[in-house]
Design a protein around this nucleic acid. Structure first.
Length: 751
DNA sequence: GACCTGCTGCGGCATG
């Protein structure tokens, strides 16, 4: 774990291959960044794995590749010497451009290997595998299942495997997938390749080290860049929805009218209209990113901003960017941002949060209070990148209008308070650690199918040894595994079949799944409509979105009318139109908040400081929220009866609150989760207290019992093929610590 | 009351 002292770094440059040194001089670089010097020493003096954690644009790629190319420069063995694994094709294309001249100077071939990369370049690499391959996890998967013999020839002899954006793999099914593929590459190789992880600044570096090398995390050399965070300028602006607005969400979906209506029928302006006014006045003329939080808000805001440009008779410089827009439209915008010739503001979801090079922007804005520090930091990394320029962040908070009918939760102004809590934790340097992934069994099923496809057949024992043990599926024991195999072989699943000698082979369903092109990714893509105008694809809408001939839709920052519907090819032909409705892209989940964020919200309620970065309206909202908090004595009061409903204030993160809610469901109480606790509809305190007492008094709550009451347990592409007992056991294992705190919570909430 | 990500191999044809 030790990193060399700075004194020993001075000779780092001299350790590099002469051709690398010449390339560095040709770039006109005066010196190496500290993180690069440290990586050179770690890679060339050490023999183990390395984790490089530094902010965007800190030169991580060069930190890894300068020493790695030095180390492999004289290699003659066949097979790729370096694999670079990236979560994004676009990132591979960027990195290819950055590595091209360096590799050319070293006479080391480098090949892009993803779905859109040139087949002939890939074929050439198959004929003569050498040098560096830049590849996606799904392309590795494809190589394993479609050309296993080549997989071994190409991948097994690698000296280094570089994994970029490691933080994006620390939770979720795709991270489990990559970890499993790395393990399978190791299993083919005579000696394990050294792993080099590149990561943004993250909460728990040891977690990342454990992901990178599960068998020996303590021996991963962790190099963290000394943070040279730029000056931070921030503002939190508060906006209240107008009075008498039945449903601000509905209002957001109605695009502003094209013509000014008669003065007696002025449409109600909603908070988003005022936010758009401010964005238009503040951001015009420079490059910026506006994070909208949802595709719907992105479209709604982009439409409002474009209209302001039209009204002011100036060229539009605000464009939407999200995952449902066609690649062409997105790339046009990315190029426009990077070029920097025309002032450009992208209104985006998290699409522009990581990876892809769009240059440095002047400021970042966020519509709606953020829920995670990890993404706020990542977004801030897009601004203030040139020396001497500050990082600018504006948060636009929307709060409901308060009338006499308003409820307690509305009056607490949680969004404003959460924004203040976010800023406090941002300044304190807090970042959420990775949460456990519920998709472990589903992803294991994927890998079982993949290994069998790769090898034709395999016995249960070697299959277990290959996939399980330390690594992504460590929580699956031998009996779980045996149960899973039996389930997958059952007549209603038919993923597997077993030969008389015990060899596992693909069953009829398993065969179909593996043959399909969509097998390579461990995540699902829902069915969608394709929107086209004059043969050009604008993007996609969920198939669940109701459309008719004549439907109006705001999409890609413009307004359209649906002219034709082709059910067979799932295509909508649209034409420009003046009216529009902003579509819903649907999904009924919400981004979880961490324990510490909610605890900080409580601290914000209890304090009486007036943060200087709040505008006047934000200050008013904060102070009104605090007043409500004090009026109800919420520092000590945990139960509040509000008409027929009972509030339980828990002040815990989303996951702990949800687990407590599941424990209550077990006891027969239905409830809804929100940031500060639970709502029990049509419930009285006297009904709840005996149940809480019982929970608090129980010697031990068995997590398996609670698991019975969890809705949508597990997750992942193959969740429906996970045996129910295994799904419950996994949930119980992952949530056992929270079940223990649920008893403490029951005691706290008792009145 | 949420977001994002990825994709083979082959036959048949036109082209240089």
């Amino acid at each position: 774990m030790s990193s060399p002292s700075f004194a020993s770094l001075e000779g780092a440059y001299d350790r590099l291959h002469p051709k690398v040194r010449r390339w560095i001089r040709d770039q006109g670089w005066n010196e190496l960044r500290e993180i690069q010097a440290r990586a050179i020493v770690a890679a060339l003096d050490g023999a183990g794995d390395i984790l490089i954690a530094a902010s965007t644009a800190a030169g991580k790629t060069e930190a890894a590749f300068l020493p790695i190319l030095t180390a492999v420069a004289d290699r003659t063995q066949s097979g790729f010497s370096v694999l670079y694994v990236s979560p994004l094709k676009a990132l591979i294309n960027d990195q290819f451009r950055r590595l091209e001249t360096l590799c050319e100077a070293m006479e080391i071939p480098v090949v892009k290997w993803h779905g859109d990369a040139s087949p002939s370049a890939k074929r050439k690499a198959i004929d003569k595998p050498e040098g560096v391959a830049l590849i996606t996890p799904e392309s590795i998967e494809a190589m394993f299942t479609r050309r296993p013999a080549d997989a071994k020839r190409l991948l097994a002899a690698a000296d280094f495997i570089v994994v970029d954006e490691v933080h994006s793999f620390l939770q979720g099914p795709r991270g489990l997938h990559v970890a499993s593929l790395l393990k399978r590459i190791d299993a083919m190789a005579p000696t394990s390749a050294r792993r080099v992880g590149l990561s943004a600044t993250i909460g728990d570096l040891r977690q990342a080290a454990a992901w990178l090398r599960p068998v020996d995390p303590d021996r991963v050399d962790i190099l963290q860049a000394k943070s040279d965070a730029p000056e931070l300028r921030l503002q939190v602006r508060g906006y209240s929805e107008p009075p008498d607005l039945d449903d601000p969400d509905h209002a957001e979906g109605v695009a502003e009218a094209d013509e000014e209506p008669a003065s007696d029928a002025l449409p109600q302006r909603i908070a988003l209209d005022y936010i758009a006014d401010h964005l238009f006045g503040t951001l015009r003329g420079s490059n910026n990113l506006v994070f909208g939080g949802s595709r719907r808000t992105v479209e709604s805001a982009a439409d409002r901003l474009r209209r302001r440009c039209e009204k002011a008779n100036v060229p539009n410089e605000f464009f939407p960017h999200h995952g449902s827009l066609s690649k062409v439209l997105r790339e046009e915008l990315e190029i426009r941002l990077k070029d920097g010739k025309l002032p450009t503001t992208a209104v985006c979801t998290s699409t522009l949060e990581l990876g892809v090079d769009i240059g440095s922007v002047k400021s970042v804005a966020q519509i709606g209070a953020p829920r995670a520090l990890a993404s706020v930091r990542q977004r801030l990394g897009r601004t203030g990148r040139r020396a001497g320029t500050p990082a600018i962040l504006r948060i636009y908070v929307r709060e409901p209008y308060i009338s006499r009918k308003s409820g307690l939760l509305d009056r607490l102004h949680m969004n404003t308070v959460r924004s203040v809590a976010i800023v406090r934790l941002l300044l304190a340097g807090f970042v959420e650690p990775a949460a456990p992934s519920p998709e472990i069994p589903s992803t294991l099923i994927h890998q079982i199918l993949s290994v069998i496809a790769e090898r034709g057949g395999i016995s249960p024992k070697p299959l277990f040894d290959l996939l399980c043990g330390p690594g992504p599926f460590a929580s699956i024991g031998t009996s779980d595994f045996a149960g899973l195999l039996r389930h997958l072989g059952s007549t209603d699943i038919r993923f597997l079949e077993q030969a008389p000698d015990g060899t596992l082979m693909l069953g009829s369903e398993g065969e179909k799944i593996v043959q399909s092109r969509s097998f390579f990714a461990v995540f699902e893509t829902p069915e969608e409509w394709r929107l086209t105008v004059g043969g050009r694809t604008l993007g996609t809408l969920p198939i669940s979105y109701p459309v008719n001939i004549g439907s109006l839709v705001v999409f890609a920052g413009q307004r359209w009318i649906v002219r034709e519907i082709d059910e067979k090819t799932r295509t909508l032909l649209v034409a420009p139109h003046r009216g529009g409705v902003v579509p819903r892209f649907e999904r009924n989940t919400f981004e979880p908040a961490h324990d510490r964020l909610i605890a900080e919200m409580k601290a914000v309620y209890e304090d009486d400081d007036v943060p200087p970065y709040l505008d006047q309206s934000g200050r008013d909202l904060l102070s009104a929220g605090r007043e409500t908090f004090r009026d109800w004595d919420l520092d000590i009061t945990t139960q509040v009866q509000e008409e027929a409903d009972l509030h339980l204030f828990l002040w815990r993160g989303t996951q702990a609150t949800a687990v407590f809610g599941a424990a209550l469901s077990m006891a027969g109480l239905e409830c809804e989760v929100h940031d500060l606790g639970l709502i029990l509809p049509k419930t009285k305190g006297e009904e709840v207290n005996p149940i809480l007492e019982k929970l608090a008094a129980m010697e031990k709550i068995d997590p398996m019992d609670v698991a019975e009451f969890v809705k949508n347990i597990g997750g992942g592409k193959f969740r429906e093929s996970v045996p129910a007992p295994l799904a419950r056991k996994q949930w119980a294992d992952q949530n056992a610590p929270l079940i223990r705190t649920a008893q403490t919570m029951a005691r706290t909430v008792l009145m």
